[in-house]
């Protein structure tokens, strides 16, 4: 019996201690940790065409959001494939950030005060300006919010839209809000007429409308009910990591401003006429890259891997079947809101 107890002790300790003996990261910032690990863990949405979905044809994950994950990996490692995609449910996003389950969350996540200040998250630059809308069946002849009296509005569990629809309708009309774990379940409920309306980000509604067989029978109400600025997020408290994510996003925007594309980035390196800001960005002039503790060619790697902001947008969203327009997501020069601070 005695020896059995020792056996028990050893095994139990071994099992309980198993997590402890695995990879011990060095103390330091998240960047050091990510480098140590050898890949970036990026929280994404696995179920929205155009933004993040399992691309079985190419045996990978594709989309607008996931391209920014790749951009980040390219900046850190010079290799856009060193990224681990982790699909997280909307409700679990901030849990995953807080517990360090993911290094960065690029998952059509709305930048809000509460999340920034209370939830221990920090947000980067907005990569997609979205707004909440409501999608209804055309045959129901609903044209405004008032027409929704008594309707069942479905939304995704744990999102700002689920709260915004309660806000937008409070005091005006009485609606029943039903939430599901993901957008597919929501659309399913809508198809089955369990839901009379779907409240979600316009980007998601349009993506689903464009890719569903019954999409032709649905209408997205024109009013934008809330601001939904979608931005990358990470765990608060790491300034270096924040700078890195922020400037990788800005790099894609600056590249678009100066016409640096995936195709011409190599030749631009030797282009003497290139704007000095772009030269600095590409590492041709100055040593700003040292501040970020990155490779000299980090921005070049980013552009080579995913292209500039416009290219990312076009590849994932402008292309069929989504056919989005740039709209407010055009560069500031073209009347949009996409704007990057100067790189100097």
């Amino acid at each position: 019996m005695k020896r059995i107890s020792i056996l028990l002790i050893v095994t139990l300790i071994a099992v309980v201690a198993l997590p402890l003996v695995s990879v011990q990261a060095q103390d330091g910032g998240l960047l050091a940790k990510v480098r140590e690990r050898g890949n970036l863990i990026c929280g994404i949405n696995g179920g929205i065409p155009g933004f993040g979905f399992v691309d079985t044809a190419n045996n990978t994950v594709s989309g607008f959001d996931t391209d920014f994950c790749r951009a980040l990996a390219a900046a850190i490692f010079g290799d856009a494939t060193k990224v681990e995609f982790k699909a997280v449910a909307a409700a679990d996003r901030f849990t995953a950030i807080g517990s360090g389950e993911i290094d960065v969350l690029i998952r059509n996540t709305t930048f809000t005060f509460g999340r920034d200040a209370q939830q221990g998250a920090e947000f980067g630059p907005v990569i997609f300006y979205d707004g909440m809308s409501i999608m209804v069946r055309t045959s129901d002849n609903i044209t405004s919010l008032e027409g929704l009296e008594g309707a069942t509005v479905c939304a995704i569990q744990g999102t700002t839209t689920a709260q915004n629809v309660a806000d937008a309708t409070s005091g005006k009309v009485k609606v029943e809000v039903l939430t599901f774990e993901n957008i597919d379940q929501v659309i399913d409920g809508f198809v089955q007429t369990r839901c009379d309306a779907v409240a979600s980000d316009q980007s998601q509604l349009r993506a689903k409308k464009a890719t569903s067989e019954k999409g032709g029978e649905w209408t997205i109400l024109p009013n934008t009910l809330s601001k939904e600025p979608l931005a990358p997020a990470w765990k608060a408290g790491d300034a270096q990591w924040g700078d890195l994510v922020r400037w990788v996003v800005y790099a894609t925007i600056i590249a678009e401003e100066y016409g640096v594309t995936q195709g011409n980035v190599e030749s631009q390196l030797t282009n003497a006429d290139l704007n000095p800001e772009a030269k600095r960005l590409l590492g041709v002039e100055g040593e700003l890259y040292k501040v970020l503790e990155l490779d000299q060619a980090w921005a070049v790697n980013v552009i080579k891997a995913v292209g500039n902001y416009g290219e990312i947008f076009d590849r994932n969203l402008t292309a069929a079947p989504l056919s989005f327009e740039r709209g407010i997501n055009a560069l500031w020069r073209n009347g949009g809101l996409i704007y990057a601070p100067p790189y100097r």
């Binding site: 807080g98 509460g114 744990g158």
Partner: peptide
């Protein structure tokens, strides 16, 4: 389900 909805806005 409710707990997961909550964990979006309060400590998990």
């Amino acid at each position: 389900f409710v707990a997961r909805t909550m964990s979006e806005s309060v400590p998990v």
